[in-house]
């Protein structure tokens, strides 16, 4: 028998979180990592994983003390576990839905997306193994992954490292990188999506 207050806590967490809860939480996470003497930046893990797989034999870029970066792999592992917990135990009453605006729904339907009862799923259809063999799935997963991995290291960071950590520390380079992120993102959705979807 589960106590009533525990059920209430789970129900409370299960609601969709508004931006003014998520934003301060992310700032708190960055602060905890700083307090632990570390800098928040998830994409650095790709370099660590390459180095751990022996990429140092091919390029000096991967010759560094990657074993000291185990903490960051733990953050990534925790993130996976957090995703599992959120998806398994904190489902909102209307299911795993992305509560996007009506304007976005109309746009997506015009692109050919079909939604049951106007509900947009949190996870799109092309995040499935079978979808890898379609043009969309291949582009999203394989090409998207390559661009993210290449671009994040070229720019020296991703959303967490530049947009959150770097901008918080008022780093000029991070501002330039975030402008780059947006120029790239806008180019993709406005110029390339019409060809792809």
């Amino acid at each position: 028998m589960v106590p009533e207050f525990l059920i209430q806590i789970v129900d409370f967490i299960s609601q969709p979180w508004p931006w003014y809860v998520a934003g301060p939480m992310i700032a708190l996470i960055m602060f905890i990592l700083l307090f632990f003497g570390r800098e928040f930046g998830i994409s650095a893990n790709f370099r660590v994983m390459c180095a751990a797989d022996g990429a140092g034999d091919y390029a000096d870029f991967f010759k560094f003390d990657w074993a000291s970066q185990g903490w960051n792999l733990m953050v990534a592992l925790g993130a996976m576990f957090g995703g599992y917990l959120a998806a398994t135990y904190f489902t909102p009453v209307d299911g795993q839905v992305a509560h996007v605006s009506q304007a976005a729904i109309t746009d997506l339907q015009a692109l050919g997306f079909e939604f049951e009862a106007g509900k947009v799923p949190l996870i799109p259809d092309f995040y499935r193994w079978e979808a890898l063999f379609t043009l969309q799935g291949f582009m999203v997963i394989v090409v998207g992954g390559f661009l993210v991995g290449f671009g994040a290291r070229y720019a020296g960071g991703c959303t967490s490292g530049h947009a959150i950590s770097g901008m918080s520390a008022l780093q000029f380079g991070s501002l330039v990188a975030v402008i780059g992120f947006f120029l790239g993102g806008l180019t993709m959705v406005h110029l390339i999506f019409p060809l792809l979807f």
């Binding site: 090409v143 998207g144 992954g145 390559f146 661009l147 993210v148 991995g149 290449f150 671009g151 994040a152 290291r153 070229y154 720019a155 020296g156 991703c158 959303t159 530049h162 330039v176 990188a177 975030v178 402008i179 780059g180 992120f181 947006f182 120029l183 790239g184 993102g185 806008l186 180019t187 993709m188 959705v189 390339i192």
Partner: peptide, 10 residues
């Protein structure tokens, strides 16, 4: 680098 990352992110 940011531009390439943004293409992939979107």
């Amino acid at each position: 680098g940011g531009f390439i990352f943004g293409l992939g992110w979107a």
